[in-house]
Design a protein around this nucleic acid. Structure first.
Length: 506
RNA sequence: CGGGCUGUGGCUCAGCUUGGUAGAGCGCCUGGUUCGGGACCAGGAGGCCGUGGGUUCAAAUCCCACCAGCCCGACCA
């Protein structure tokens, strides 16, 4: 009844953030859990977001010289076992195929039949299987660089799944490159991190910290891992994209060798980099509110929905005609290098119900057109980044002319809002006490949203990192690039080359 | 994989202690009244109460086993 006071999502963010997150996803029909433990069904609205991410990233990969290819889902155990650190890092979360064929047992139930000679690992990542191909393809320095990307699903048998953020099977892209020199490979590693950084900021409206992972957080088998870290609305950090400099570790493991310019055999220098469907979850936690999803226009499956208001049957045809005409006009316009995506929602549903559905789905702009608007030649426009009840009235022509600009304004506003939030919750900290205070909830029983990113000096010791993780569940998220101001480690008093970013994380 | 909790229509749950073969709200369907707003009225569909076994004249309710899920720990894009 008192609709104005009620929020569409319960609980609110401030009451129970993890539960709020699940409810937003459900209400927006992004995805749902499946009967297969840890796996999810991605519904059209959620998959549409992923497709937009894919399309954009793919264009960026092409623009930086990469081409797509596809490698097998199954990795022979022996391949997988070649890089020691790599195996150790992934062993616990591998799904392993050991049999082919199903046979009916004595009880009539189907059972696995013939054992395989060599078990197959379902790829948790593809360095080793791709390396095997690269070893064949690379003979000479003239074959380099190899710049390939693959869009694929991978499986990591996680203990605690969460829709989009951590599922047993997930979708991603993995780039794998081989270079003639260390310098080139390092350059590639940071170039691709740069691609992720601009993708996150310009398309997902997500401000990030970019930098290098600490020794304990880096990819198993990598020499160096770079990542971008975003702060979502519960002030935790989430890793949104990673790029690894693998040195010659995997080249040695897979036998990727080439004859260099001096005629000597040399191992290639490889990199790998990836972004996953986790980005969809990151967008959800970044921008959404207590009324549901809020989507940045550049990745929204549809940017504008037109809602015909047809209280009387006799006015209906005319209203629909005007709606269709507007939709057609809008589709002819472009927003950020692509045609505007518009839907006219003609379903026979109560106006309020329909409106709230689109609010919960986070469509950037809702346009209402009814009989009275026809008379005045006006439309009622609502932006998802503004309060739910606010509407702006303007002529149809004016709206059509400004739609693209309005979408850009929403895009920018979401970014600015997120940036402000990140800045407000990032603190320079110079004492251990303040650090512990910052990361400790006031209410021990039901922890409120607290903390954020702490910029603090650290001596680089793994032991200190371990201690902090045990005490507070806080880790070094990233060591920012660049020189930075030297100082003293706030935990040991030892010298520190620069401040690093600390936070609780997903 | 260890510790705690829970499995009842699509969703949230009541009933279980004190056994007697199922309830509510929301959602869904139909009709009507509404309709610039997630409305209202009336009617209706939908559950062998996680699975298997046991106790009993009788089990959603008691006992055992298994399975699944949630929360907490170790891991993670």
């Amino acid at each position: 009844m008192t609709t104005s006071e009620k929020n569409a999502i319960s609980p609110r963010r401030s009451e129970d953030f993890p539960e709020w997150y699940q409810q937003v996803i459900r209400a927006a029909e992004l995805a749902e859990p499946s009967d297969v433990r840890g796996c999810m069904v991605i519904r059209p609205w959620g998959y549409g977001i992923w497709e937009n991410m894919q399309r954009q990233l793919d264009a960026m990969f092409r623009a930086t010289g990469h081409r797509n290819a596809y490698f097998p889902l199954f990795i022979p155990l022996s391949y997988f076992a070649k890089e020691a650190e790599h195996v150790e890092g992934f062993a616990k979360e591998c799904a392993v195929v050991t049999h082919t064929r199903l046979e009916a047992g004595p009880d009539g139930k189907l059972k696995p039949g013939s054992p395989l000679n060599e078990p197959l690992v379902v790829r948790p990542t593809s360095e080793t299987i791709i390396g095997a191909s690269y070893a064949k393809w690379v003979q000479s320095y003239r074959d380099l660089p190899i710049l390939i990307n693959q869009w694929a699903n991978v499986v990591r048998w996680e203990m605690r799944p969460r829709l989009f953020l951590r599922t047993t099977e997930f979708l991603w892209q993995e780039g794998h490159t081989v270079h003639e020199t260390e310098a080139e490979a390092r350059e590639e590693t940071s170039r691709m991190l740069g691609v992720y950084e601009s993708f996150a900021q310009d398309y997902c409206a997500i401000p990030v910290f970019a930098g290098e992972k600490s020794e304990s957080e880096k990819f198993p088998g990598a020499v160096q891992t770079l990542s971008i870290e975003a702060m979502v609305q519960d002030r935790k950090a989430i890793q949104a994209g990673t790029s690894h400099f693998l040195g010659q570790n995997f080249a040695k493991a897979s036998g990727i060798q080439f004859q260099n310019r001096e005629g000597r055999q040399e191992y290639g220098w490889t990199t790998s980099w990836g972004m996953t469907t986790r980005m969809v979850g990151t967008v959800v936690m970044m921008h959404s509110d207590d009324d549901g999803l809020v989507l940045p226009p550049r990745i929204a499956p549809e940017q504008i929905v037109i809602l015909p208001i047809t209280p009387k049957e006799e006015t209906r045809p005319k209203v629909l005609e005007v709606c269709d005409a507007l939709a057609l006009q809008l589709r002819g316009k472009r927003f950020a290098d692509a045609p505007i995506e518009v839907e006219v929602d003609k379903r026979d549903l109560g106006g309020g119900v329909k409106n709230w559905e689109w609010i919960k789905k986070g469509v950037p702009i809702r346009v209402e057109i009814g009989p009275r608007d026809l008379e005045k030649n006006s439309v009622a426009v609502s932006r998802r980044d503004q309060p739910i009840k606010s509407k702006e009235f303007m002529s149809i022509q004016e709206f059509a002319a400004n739609a693209s600009e309005m979408l850009m304004s929403i895009q920018n506003n979401l970014y600015q809002r997120a940036k402000k939030f990140q800045e407000e919750n990032t603190r320079v900290i110079d004492s251990k006490d303040e650090f512990y205070d910052f990361f400790t909830a006031k209410n021990a029983n039901k922890a409120e949203i607290h903390g954020g990113f702490a910029l603090a000096h650290w001596n680089g010791s793994r032991k200190v990192e371990e201690q902090i993780k045990n005490d507070l569940k806080v880790t070094v998220r990233v060591v920012p690039f660049g020189k930075g101001e030297p100082g003293k480690c706030i935990f040991t008093g030892e010298p520190s080359p620069k401040r690093v970013v600390w936070a609780k994380s997903y």
